[in-house]
């Protein structure tokens, strides 16, 4: 099994779906953020798998490079997201997103 691209892609798809479920279903902003991290990692897994099963060694290396960049982007996203969470927590005293409804009409 570990020798087939399909297996990795399906695994990545599963993790992606889990992540999107978490994003759609959880109420806590940090939980949602973690779910997004899961999704990004799922994508990374597909990228690395594509690379590893790619046409040549260069593509494999390319996959790793892209995955590295995605990790860095995820780090930046997490920084921003957590800063916003802390800022809103200071105002609202709750991390639950569905209680942020001051503007809904």
């Amino acid at each position: 099994m570990s020798g087939s691209l399909d297996a990795y892609l399906i695994l990545a798809g599963l993790l992606f779906a889990i992540g999107s479920f978490g994003f759609l279903a959880r109420r806590n902003a940090i939980s949602m953020l973690m779910s997004i991290e899961l999704m990004l990692n799922a994508v990374n897994l597909s990228i690395v798998a594509f690379g590893a099963f790619g046409t040549d060694a260069a593509m494999a290396a390319q996959g790793s490079v892209v995955a590295l960049m995605v990790i860095a982007v995820a780090a930046a996203e997490a920084t921003v997201g957590l800063a916003i969470v802390i800022a809103i927590y200071r105002n609202k005293r709750t991390p639950l997103v569905d209680e942020y409804d001051a503007m809904s009409q």
Partner: peptide, 24 residues
């Protein structure tokens, strides 16, 4: 301002979510 941070968190969460989808 609670409106501002509220807008930001919603924007951030959906934005990041869409980034993940896009990346996929």
């Amino acid at each position: 301002d609670s409106y501002s941070t509220e807008g930001a968190i919603k924007y951030f969460l959906l934005g990041s979510f869409s980034s993940a989808i896009f990346l996929f």
